[in-house]
Design a protein around this nucleic acid. Structure first.
Length: 320
RNA sequence: CCGGAUGGAACGCAAGCG
């Protein structure tokens, strides 16, 4: 039963929702964890209706079930439904409170989010980080700083959120100060510092972080490539892209959007085409609308209007 | 006896429209 649940989750995380449902249905005895895993699978698949249907069939619901339902609603923007789940929960832990807080953040309602945080029986660092990041994204630096300085314990996630907040306002000295003051830095911290420089036109300092970081993830590479691309160093951008290809990096769809964009500015139509083909054949990344958009834009700018038109007409999406 | 499966926080990207 434990291994079946693990398999169910693995299939779901690879988008094979029907396979994971098949495993679930064939399980001889289902416990609360397997039911919850199936709920999570549908929640991540964006299918709140199936989450709802499944939950009515469950022999019992626990904190995990309730919170999964709450999050499923929240991520589809159904804040009222999320709240009604929350209100009906027989007991609430800090995970549930934070999920509700985040539901309001997703709805853009920072007042309710804050009110939810204030009502928590005990403040929790995850909840505060959620709130801080929301304030930062909305440009309320004073509020973000207030939360940050009000806490005694600063963990790496919270500090990275604060670093990102300073990056939003372009306060690079403060951002670097938080970064340097961190006792332990995660890869996300390194990437955040790199992106902060990248987004503020400092390709040189971005490159320094790029060279110093203990490990490079897909995010690291993309941030570096776009740091160059945004500042007119298109040759460097393409060089880094090629370097990335020689490492064993897991390339996701965003990598290719970024590469296509760099090709676009250099006017390398051929490179872009081969990149587009290689994406599906070598990396099994399914092209999305955004990739077609990039490539069509590139071909049009290069004067290949007929090719661009053909691409748009033949793409597996409805053109907008 | 112990361990193993499920829920909450921080990082990257194009175009268009304002």
């Amino acid at each position: 039963s434990i291994s079946a649940t693990a398999m169910l989750t693995a299939y779901a995380q690879h988008g094979q929702i029907q396979d994971s449902r098949a495993i679930f249905e064939q399980m001889p005895q289902k416990n609360i964890v397997s039911w919850n895993a199936m709920l999570t699978a549908y929640a991540e698949h964006g299918d709140h209706l199936e989450v709802e249907r499944l939950s009515t069939r469950m022999p019992e619901l626990d904190l995990v079930s309730w919170t999964t339902m709450l999050t499923a609603y929240a991520e589809e923007g159904l804040t009222l439904k999320a709240n009604s789940v929350f209100e009906q929960m027989p007991e609430k832990d800090r995970v549930a409170w934070t999920a509700m807080l985040r539901a309001y953040v997703l709805a853009g309602n920072l007042e309710y989010a804050r009110w939810t945080m204030e009502r928590m029986p005990e403040w929790d660092t995850v909840a505060v980080t959620t709130m801080l990041a929301a304030y930062a994204a909305a440009g309320h630096m004073d509020q973000a700083e207030g939360l940050f300085s009000g806490l005694e314990e600063h963990n790496p996630v919270l500090q990275t959120a604060m670093l990102g907040a300073y990056s939003v306002t372009g306060d690079m000295l403060e951002a670097k100060c938080v970064f340097d003051g961190m006792v332990s830095k995660s890869l996300v911290s390194w990437n955040s510092m790199l992106s902060a420089y990248a987004q503020h036109g400092n390709a040189f300092q971005a490159k320094q972080i790029f060279d110093e970081t203990p490990e490079r993830t897909a995010v690291t590479w993309i941030a570096m490539i776009s740091a160059y691309a945004h500042n007119g160093h298109l040759r460097e951008a393409l060089l880094v892209f090629h370097e990335m290809n020689t490492f064993n990096v897991f390339l996701d769809e965003v990598c290719f959007i970024c590469a296509l964009h760099a090709c676009n500015h250099v006017g390398k139509t051929t490179a872009a085409r081969s990149c587009f083909v290689s994406m599906s054949f070598d990396y099994h990344v399914v092209p999305t609308k955004r990739h077609y958009c990039c490539l069509a834009d590139l071909m049009a700018r290069a004067g290949h209007l007929r090719d661009a038109e053909e691409l748009v007409l033949n793409m597996p999406f409805v053109p907008e």
